[in-house]
Design a protein around this nucleic acid. Structure first.
Lengths: 320, 320
DNA sequence: TCCATTGTCTGACTATAGTCAGACAATGGA
DNA sequence: TCCATTGTCTGACTATAGTCAGACAATGGA
């Protein structure tokens, strides 16, 4: 990443926070503190348990309690015991509270509209497209990749989703018991590695590697949730697996894949995997790949720590 | 603008403020209040007059005075009388203050880098491009268009820049005294109209119309500053002139232009102006255009008030 | 039945970000 | 020389957003 890119991001941050800061201050503020507005929004049309409000808004329980009391005093919300657990309290908006929520919603919509209104049709469409892109990529940059126990709930959820998808996509369907094995025990160091990708705490992808010899490993279980494809998550999973393989001294990685998984084949080809003759009898495999000389090459792409770049530029601190 | 577009903008606002909010809170906060950090940034490497700080940061003079005192007490800034005006005070950063500014700068840069770091090369480039696009279009949406006295300083600055540009672009150069007239007096209602486009208070474009008959007007002085081209400003100026023309009962608009001004010709063609035989002897004109039936057509594009769209969606108030 | 845990609330704080009136000094034309 | 204006500062406030310890009630296994 170069200094010009960093500069663009800082400019963007500044421009956007300036413009959107107006929203928080002027639009939503109107006579109500931001804290109260946030709680009102979060209670929403269906009501919410106080506990959930606390978690979602990351508020101190004492502070939240007082904000709720303030809403109650203004006749915007009511609190009663939750039906299922007497310790919990459930907040619901009164009719007046709902009207207030409508008003907030409208102001927020007006603000969004005011950003688009001065633009012409073509500019407006470009704006929408660019905003969508930034949003998607910001989400992508929030995806974390970590090794987990393949027996954990998150890992099992990914594997099940993976199998379900294979079953749907393979012409013959998919039965995991007929496929080549990869028991959870095989995917824990030193026998292997299981990585999970998460977004906002939710699992959105996985990838595993199984050690098959002193220098040889096999890539398994590469899967990314449909909702988060196109964000480069599979690429990051693969890079992380390769990095680990190099660390434990492997030199060659192999994998098999089904003809219906085109994206996967493209990913492997892009990363220097070459097609080889079948090395197993997996009935679901149509293509076999391997990548040699892992330790020689500066493996494809490794995640780096952000580099610090000094610049004499003087930047405003609000969103720089 | 449709409901889907509004929804995209709101999603964007929420996603971006969440992510960038982290910056303001965590990155820049570190042991110093946001207010102090902002003042430190704004004083900058060259120092600044207190008065300018007040204007640029929109701070109450009492509040700013206290913030400066706090910085002084921490040994980060010094204050002394301004050389040129004994009422004003000039703030400069001490060596320690400069080090602090470096640290803030670095944190801000790290934050920008942390947004890009998890992305792969292609994603990173797409992010930069999309951010640039959003920023440009947000700037575009902040451009205001207002009628002004063509004799005002801003108007004169635009006209001079316009003449300078014509002089540079025309093969023969440009001498305003040889061109067809448009004295300031002719561009004030009811004889005409002079519009100015401004961004952050700075003039960035102009456009004028001269009434030539009961039903006929002529477009003059269409110019947009090079730094803000491609934002649809000329389109908006033209639409605003046409709207005014319709309001005062004109039915036909004419204009002439030089062959070197290709963008202008494209703009007019796009807006329904058709080329006609010369209607004057302006030595700098190579093309003559007119648009008839202004009052019949729902003139090209008119700026509308944002429409309110109700939706049951429940949205978080922080950047929605 | 006991008791650790969970969820909520209250009281007592603090820091930040401001607002407003009025004092005071310097300035720059009339 | 006068005096309105400009720029800064001080004192006296306020609202918001929070933190933290401890009280209390309900829950759900051991």
């Amino acid at each position: 990443m170069d200094a010009g890119q960093i500069r663009q991001v800082r400019h963007f941050n500044r421009a956007v926070t300036r413009r959107i800061g107006v929203l928080t201050d002027d639009y939503l503020g109107r006579g109500r503190s931001l804290g109260e507005a946030r709680v009102l929004f979060e209670i929403g049309r269906d009501g919410a348990n106080v506990r959930d409000l606390r978690v979602r808004l990351l508020l101190d329980s004492g502070y939240l309690s007082r904000l709720l009391r303030a809403l109650e005093k203004q006749g915007l919300a009511t609190l009663r015991r939750a039906d299922d657990d007497g310790r919990m309290r459930r907040a619901t908006l009164t009719r007046k509270g709902l009207r207030e929520l409508d008003a907030l919603d409208r102001r927020s919509q007006d603000f969004a509209a005011s950003l688009l209104a001065p633009l012409g049709g073509p500019q407006r469409e470009r704006m929408i497209a660019a905003m969508g892109e930034v949003e998607r990529l910001m989400r992508a940059s929030m995806v974390t990749i970590d090794p987990v126990d393949p027996g954990s709930a998150d890992a099992r959820a990914c594997i099940e989703a993976y199998f379900r998808e294979l079953d749907a996509r393979f012409e013959t369907g998919f039965d995991s018991t007929r496929s080549t094995s990869a028991d959870p025990g095989e995917l824990v160091p030193p026998a292997g590695l299981f990585l999970i990708a998460r977004l906002d705490g939710q699992p959105v992808g996985c990838g595993a590697m199984k050690v098959k010899g002193r220098r040889l490993g096999e890539i398994k279980r590469m899967w990314v949730a449909p909702s988060t494809r196109g964000l480069g998550i599979a690429q990051r999973l693969l890079a992380a697996l390769e990095k680990y393989a190099v660390e434990i001294g492997l030199d060659k990685l192999q994998l098999d894949t089904n003809r219906t998984l085109r994206e996967a084949r493209a990913l492997y080809a892009r990363n220097g995997y070459v097609e080889v003759p079948p090395y197993n009898t997996n009935p679901y495999a149509d293509h076999w790949f391997e990548k040699r000389g892992l330790r020689q090459r500066k493996s494809g792409r490794v995640e780096k720590k952000p580099r610090r770049i000094r610049s004499p530029a003087n930047q405003s601190p609000t969103g720089c």
